[in-house]
Computed example of a mutant assay.
Amino acid sequence: MTWSLPNILTVLRLLAAPGVAVLFLYFTRPWADWIALVLFSGAALTDWIDGYLARAWSQESKFGAMLDPIADKAMVVIALLVICGFSGMDPWILLPATLILFRETFVSGLREFLGDTAGTLRVTRLAKWKTAAQMTAIAVLFSTGAFEHYFIMQTWGMSDAVVRDILAGEVPDELGIVWKYRGMQISWWVGIVLLWAAMVLTLVTGGDYFRKSLPHLKG
């Protein structure tokens, strides 16, 4: 194993995966949401940077090739667990998250069974889009958690009628409640659309991988 910069970035991305969940143990919300968003986004960015540097500097290695998909999956799996938790197991999030986790577990088990043969099944461009969609959706949903927390805290103790009047513009919005509510709504819908798109890409690429592996499973 060579401690090149691309490999170091991959290891840091792997370590950042559990860090996203641990943040919620030591920081109160919405700070935990914002820090998790920054940490996750930074780690997701290294997914592109380490691959680019490895190819540009001719530093591609077996260690990096092995660890890169593990780091990606760890990031996605742990982040989805955190989001499912603070979303109250919202079915709009829980269903695609479940299918994504199922696919990742299935493909990981299939790769383990295939052993060295798995290396001959090349990663498609669609699979890269799948990873990008997953990470973008998760980053957006982390921002939803932050907006939601601000909105709840600043409307705490207000009656539903007062909140409705503020959102309708009938009462002065002295606390900036409206933009927090809009941010919560917009980021939630954008995150949900991206998450469901990621789910579709995840299932399609999983089916494609299984189809390619069938010749190696005969007998």
Rank of each mutant, 00 (worst) to 15 (best):
I138V: 10
I138F: 02
A139W: 09
A139L: 03
A139G: 10
A139N: 09
A139C: 05
V140W: 07
V140G: 02
V140D: 05
V140S: 03
L141V: 15
L141W: 12
L141G: 13
L141T: 15
F142Q: 01
F142M: 07
F142D: 02
S143Y: 11
S143N: 05
S143Q: 10
T144Y: 04
T144V: 02
T144C: 01
T144L: 00
T144D: 01
G145L: 02
G145E: 03
G145C: 04
G145H: 04
A146D: 07
A146S: 13
F147L: 00
F147Q: 05
F147R: 01
F147C: 02
E148K: 15
E148W: 03
H149T: 07
Y150K: 03
Y150G: 01
Y150S: 06
Y150M: 08
Y150R: 13
F151P: 10
I152Y: 08
I152G: 00
Q154R: 12
Q154M: 14
T155N: 11
T155V: 08
T155P: 05
T155R: 06
W156G: 00
W156V: 00
W156H: 11
G157K: 01
G157I: 01
M158W: 12
M158I: 07
M158P: 02
M158D: 10
M158L: 15
S159A: 07
S159L: 07
S159E: 12
D160G: 04
D160E: 13
D160W: 09
A161S: 12
A161C: 00
V162F: 03
V162M: 12
V162K: 10
V162S: 06
V163A: 10
R164P: 00
R164V: 02
R164H: 08
D165E: 15
D165P: 02
D165V: 02
D165F: 00
I166F: 11
I166W: 11
L167K: 06
L167P: 06
L167A: 04
L167Q: 10
G169Y: 09
G169P: 06
G169S: 07
G169F: 07
G169K: 05
G169T: 08
E170R: 15
E170N: 13
V171G: 11
V171K: 11
V171P: 12
P172T: 01
D173P: 03
D173E: 05
D173Q: 01
E174K: 14
E174G: 00
L175S: 05
L175M: 11
L175T: 02
G176P: 03
G176E: 04
I177A: 14
I177R: 11
I177C: 10
V178I: 14
W179E: 09
W179T: 03
K180Q: 11
K180E: 01
K180R: 14
Y181W: 14
G183K: 11
G183C: 04
G183L: 06
